[in-house]
Design a protein around this nucleic acid. Structure first.
Length: 756
RNA sequence: GAAUCUGUAGCUCAGUUGGUUAGAGCGCAUCAUUGACAUUGAUGAGGUCAGAGGUUCAAGUCCUCUCAGAUUCACCA
């Protein structure tokens, strides 16, 4: 054996595991399987430290595999809708282009190629980390079969009356050009102003003066004595010179501002609700490109909100209508992707009626069908679940499956179309105005996006002819699915559940579903975990996993979340090259509490590299001792059979410690205290075994061999889930020496109490 | 505004259902080591477990409050 451990053979060891079929479980109906679906990484993203924390999954997987359970760890890759398109658009920007230069099919194809180039990268990286995944069951989220199933789910939801299309106020990012769900909006505190504007007989206080051009009412508290006489009357909206009503609304805080609030139903969520209640007019003054439109007086048109604000303030000031300006800081929604302020806009979108789905998901958590670890996350989950609102599943991007709805242009002439004509000139117009100018095929081929009025009729199945007017001018909805709509069905899709006909679901599905554990980080508990639970219950009546395990988050030395934009990411692969994969894996679990933040430092990895080397050297020494005894006594039998009559107190002591560590490792792994388990193993091996037992064994004769070997082999087994490479390579060497039956450590039997 | 978490050695953190002198890694000090390993060994210094009160035979651990920090959720003008 070499003088120190080198990690150069890791790739070979991984290959031999994979070739031996160890990663691929056999379906055995007499046994209970253990299965984990990997939280699918973005297919085109390289791995970061956060992914390396999936080591805890490998620990569980390897442990159960050694216990003899049919064990499945199913890997996958996500097309990651908005994320990927955003990255791609940045790339386009560098080349001086934008998404508007392409029709949607071309853009989609470009992104597809872009992703394909990197798609296998993180598969390679996961192998580097030693993850014992079943690559024969790998899935990619845009595989035809998976997409087909997702569309079938949409159809089922639709048929069950759980899908609807409505024009509500949405979180719209005019830069990214898409709406977002509430979860994707980041609230930031912004220092701004409160402007007091004179509206006829009263004044209103507002943080967004520019939206006044779209005001359709003023609201006051109906109990407010100052304004009671005005309720039901109208006042004149300045700058626009239009009569708008004063309404009484109990939710208005009389203490705040002037106690009177301007109401802009199309650009404020609260005002939207008020307008629905009081039947107010909706005037959308900002378009989806972020600029003011035809609904504002001429001089304010075609401008961004900030510009309109400037003008409105100036004009109000010169008209003597701006009473005062106060400094004011408040929360403003920002796009989680590009960081720009979200513009609340009314837009027709597709929604999932969430209440019935949420109810089942709440019940499942309450009755323990799905458990949480650490358990406090159950409360977080239930709190969120019980306040959940209908889910906006439509995104105005191209990178993802399109919503399967088809509109007849001739029945819905008010559909707004954005497309490139045959000369690549951008056209933006209502169908009614251009139907005679452009052939349908030209529109269809150059299509970028469309906005169908909320009352448009659609077909949920693709048809080539409109059943009403027999037109062949049918276009599929250009909105794509929220990426979580697809990944929310991931456990079902990957295991072969068939939504359209559940009886045709695969054997894998029947055997491995519900899976055992879903291990992820708490930051996607709502985005992903909650959605998977809802979909799982909705489609199969069963939870997709019995346990939600939230692992720790890796932060930088300053305690900050690692992110590419902050430039503080530590690349796990460079660490594996420098110190070996095992050292990194051990550093990622050693002494770490579940679901907490932890700092990964090079010091810590180095310390674990030393431990890995200690294992190597201790094993080398044990073999040297044995060889020495063999030279003295060629007939010496190398065996692990313990003869209790020959044991001295040291032997008994180390065997007792071994039994203790076997027991505690079992307990700790089963209750997910991987940090504790690894710490105990570290202490046991280095201190109890090396520093104490081996030191004393130096002075003893060949009778130490069985105990030495027994402790060593069992230690290797116990450590294998944590540090698979060094343990396997040592095992292979010892196996030859000691004629061990089990060909590989990865599939060797998990240690049981030693009788002596 | 609501909820959750954290505060333990110089640094980064463990500490299970409350149970003897509170632990690890790194760092530090002293010594050792020519045959497993300097990627080593031994010994040691260093902590009124954020603060106050309470429950208990017993509290780092449970309860209440205070202080400090972090995070998540939330449509307030």
């Amino acid at each position: 054996m070499d003088k120190s451990y080198t990690s150069t053979s890791e790739t070979d060891i991984y290959q031999s595991w994979e070739n031996s079929g160890a990663f691929t479980p056999q379906i055995d109906k007499t046994k209970t399987p253990f299965s984990i679906i990997l939280p699918l990484p973005n297919a085109n993203d390289p791995m970061h430290m956060g992914h390396a924390v999936f080591t805890v999954q490998d620990i569980m997987i390897r442990y159960h595999r050694m216990l003899g359970d049919p064990t499945l760890w199913l890997p996958g890759g996500d097309h990651a809708g908005i994320e990927t398109q955003f990255v791609f658009e940045k790339k386009l920007q560098k080349d001086g282009k934008s998404r508007f230069d392409f029709d949607r099919q071309t853009l989609f194809d470009l992104i597809w190629d872009f992703v394909e180039k990197n798609r296998t990268l993180n598969q390679f990286q996961m192998k580097k980390l030693g993850f014992s995944m079943d690559w024969t069951r790998y899935h990619y989220s845009l595989e035809p079969a998976i997409v087909k199933n997702v569309l079938a789910t949409f159809k089922k939801l639709y048929n069950d009356g759980l899908i609807y299309r409505e024009e509500k106020i949405v979180n719209y990012c005019t830069f990214c050009g898409t709406a977002f769900s509430n979860l994707e909006v980041v609230h930031k505190n912004v220092d701004s102003h409160l402007w007091y504007i004179k509206y006829g007989p009263l004044s209103v206080a507002t943080t967004r003066p520019e939206t006044m051009l779209g005001d359709t009412a003023v609201a006051v508290n109906s109990k407010d004595k100052r304004y009671q006489h005005l309720i039901g009357k109208t006042i004149t909206l300045p700058l626009v010179n239009k009569e708008i009503p004063v309404i009484g609304e109990d939710s208005i805080d009389m203490e705040f501002g002037t106690g009177a609030v301007k109401v802009t139903p199309s650009h404020s969520p609260e005002d939207y609700d008020m307008a629905k209640k009081h039947n107010l007019e909706f005037i959308r003054i900002f378009d989806y490109d972020g600029k003011s439109n035809q609904n504002v007086p001429k001089n304010y048109r075609g401008l961004f909100p900030a510009q309109v604000r400037q003008m409105v303030i100036e004009d109000l000031t010169s008209a003597g209508l701006l009473e005062k300006t106060e400094a004011y800081s408040h929360e403003v929604g920002h796009c989680y992707r590009c960081g720009r302020p979200i513009e609340p806009i009314t837009a027709p979108q597709w929604y999932v009626k969430i209440a019935p789905l949420a109810k089942a998901a709440i019940d499942a958590a309450k009755n323990g069908d799905v458990k949480f670890f650490p358990s406090r996350f159950k409360k977080t989950y239930l709190d969120w679940m019980s306040n959940i609102r209908d889910w906006n599943i439509s995104r105005q991007i191209v990178w993802g499956p399109r919503i399967p709805a088809w509109y007849c242009l001739d029945c819905n002439p008010n559909i707004k179309l954005n497309f490139l004509d045959k000369n690549k000139n951008p056209i933006s117009a209502f169908y009614r105005d251009i139907k005679d100018k452009y052939p349908f095929e030209e529109i269809k081929n150059g299509l970028q996006s469309m906005v169908a009025p909320v009352d448009s009729e659609f077909f949920i199945d693709e048809v080539s002819e409109c059943s009403k007017c027999h037109s062949h001018s049918l276009l599929q909805e250009t909105d794509t699915f929220d990426t979580w709509f697809l990944s929310g069905q991931w456990p079902l899709s990957t295991l072969g559940f068939n939504t359209a006909d559940p009886s045709k679901s695969s054997e894998d599905f029947h055997y491995f579903y519900p899976t055992s554990v879903m291990d992820t980080m708490w930051d996607i508990l709502f985005f992903w975990v909650a959605r998977m639970i809802m979909f799982g219950l909705y489609l199969t009546k069963e939870v997709p996993f019995k346990l939600v395990h939230l692992h720790a988050r890796c932060v930088d030395a300053k305690g900050q979340k690692m992110s590419k934009s902050k430039g503080n990411v530590v690349d796990p692969l460079s660490m594996t090259e420098k110190y070996g994969t095992d050292a990194l894996r051990m550093a990622l679990v050693y002494g770490i509490a579940p679901a907490s933040d932890f700092v990964i430092s090079e010091d810590k990895i180095r310390a674990q590299r030393n431990f890995v080397n200690k294992i190597w050297n201790a094993s080398r020494f044990v073999l040297m001792i044995i060889e020495r005894f063999q030279e003295q006594n060629p007939k010496l039998e190398i065996s692990t059979t313990i003869n209790s009559s020959k044991l001295n107190t040291d032997d008994k002591s180390i065997l007792e410690s071994l039994n203790k560590i076997i027991k505690s490792t079992d307990t700790d792994i089963n209750r997910h205290h991987f940090g504790q388990a690894s710490e105990n193993l570290y202490q046991f091996f280095w201190h109890d075994f090396c520093d104490v037992y081996i030191e004393k064994a130096k002075d003893r004769g060949e009778e130490v061999v069985p105990v030495l070997l027994t402790v060593l082999i069992n230690s290797l087994k116990l450590l294998h889930p944590f540090i698979p490479f060094v343990t396997e390579s040592v095992y292979q060497i010892i196996r030859q020496k000691a004629n061990l039956d089990e060909p590989q450590l990865i599939t060797a039997s998990w240690p049981k109490e030693i009788k002596f």
